[in-house]
Computed example of a mutant assay.
Amino acid sequence: MAGYSDDLRLAHILADGADDITTRAFRALDAPALGRPDLSPAAETDRSVEEQVRGTLSRARPRDGVLGEEYGRTGYGQRVWIVDPIDCPENFVRGVPVWATMVALLEHDEVVVGVVSAPALNRRWWAARDGGAWTGRNINRAQRIRVSQVAKLADASLSSSDPAGWERHDRLDHFVNLTRSVWRTRSFGDFWSHMLVAEGAVDISAEPSASLWELAACQVVVEEAGGMFTDLSGVPSPDGGSVLCTNGRLHAEALRALGGGPLSLRV
């Protein structure tokens, strides 16, 4: 896969180890039925996953840097592994199976490998730059995925974060404008929204606020599936603090609806 096959296989190994930790912790949870959940079980599992990932990388890729949600960045250079141990921790602690571990490799400031693993959904998605996007149980049992061909906002399905987040970032009016322009709006979950775009089940996903480790793996999967992945100003980067993800055909219109800036295309 475009020279990144070894790195992609390592990313799967990292995800396998993470899945073992997160699945055991998830099954052991006594999820609260009422009230705001205690996030500390997710935080403990976050740290365990990131520690294991860092330990494996220290042996397999000792010269590479690592950036994780829990322990920040260690090491420098042109290659940096990015890990989000548990995306959607609120779901994790409430017993909702929509959560994932995400592993990506950034090389010369471009995401070249990404794996998104959601073991409670029994789903995994991955891509290497110029090698297509895939889903399946593992790297040897996979099917290629592609974005949808929907070309009109009025026919599009949108998945997004809740309106409160858009309001906090002074973008609620723009968000409502987009929801009124599309056929259907749902909130399937952060990483899952983007993966649904990659496999063509959803046409647009968007978040007003997100971190690099929450987006890096998603970007390469969506782009290799034929979609577009930018921040809300139209820059194709996972590090812009926000995200608009589409099948490509709808990107310019969706960006305008959200009050975004001029679209910057990948070259």
Results as ranks from 00 to 15, higher is better:
G95W: 11
W81G: 10
H194Y: 15
A100G: 10
E50A: 12
E44L: 15
D155P: 04
A18D: 07
E224M: 02
G3T: 01
P37F: 07
A142K: 02
T101N: 13
T45Y: 01
D7Y: 02
G234L: 12
R129V: 01
I86N: 04
E51Q: 13
L258Y: 10
V220G: 05
G227L: 04
A225I: 01
W183A: 05
S181Y: 06
G227C: 08
V235M: 06
D190Q: 14
L212C: 01
E223T: 05
S161I: 07
Y76M: 03
R141I: 07
L212N: 01
A142I: 02
R63W: 00
G165L: 10
V176F: 10
S209L: 14
W126C: 00
V96D: 12
W126H: 03
D7L: 03
A201C: 12
S160G: 14
C245W: 06
T22V: 15
L8R: 00
G226P: 03
D38C: 07
G165F: 04
L34K: 03
P262G: 05
D231C: 08
P37H: 11
L215Y: 13
D130I: 03
G75H: 04
T185S: 15
E107I: 00
S48G: 09
L172T: 13
I204S: 09
S148A: 15
V235N: 09
A210M: 01
H169N: 15
N122C: 09
A154P: 00
G17C: 09
R47G: 14
E44C: 11
D19K: 08
S193I: 11
P85S: 14
R9F: 01
S205G: 15
A118M: 13
A2Y: 03
A201F: 05
T185N: 14
A120P: 08
G72K: 08
P208H: 07
D38M: 03
A15P: 03
V83W: 02
W213T: 14
A15C: 06
M102K: 09
Q52A: 08
A252Q: 12
C88Q: 15
A225L: 00
C245V: 14
S117E: 02
R137E: 05
D231H: 05
P236H: 13
A28C: 04
V96P: 06
G200A: 06
T246H: 14
S237V: 14
E90H: 14
P89A: 11
W213F: 14
S148P: 15
L215M: 15
D231E: 08
S5R: 02
V150F: 01
G65W: 02
A127E: 02
G260L: 06
S181G: 10
F229Y: 14
A60C: 10
S209T: 12
I86S: 06
V112R: 08
I139V: 14
T179G: 08
A25T: 03
G95N: 11
G77P: 06
V115D: 05
E199Y: 00
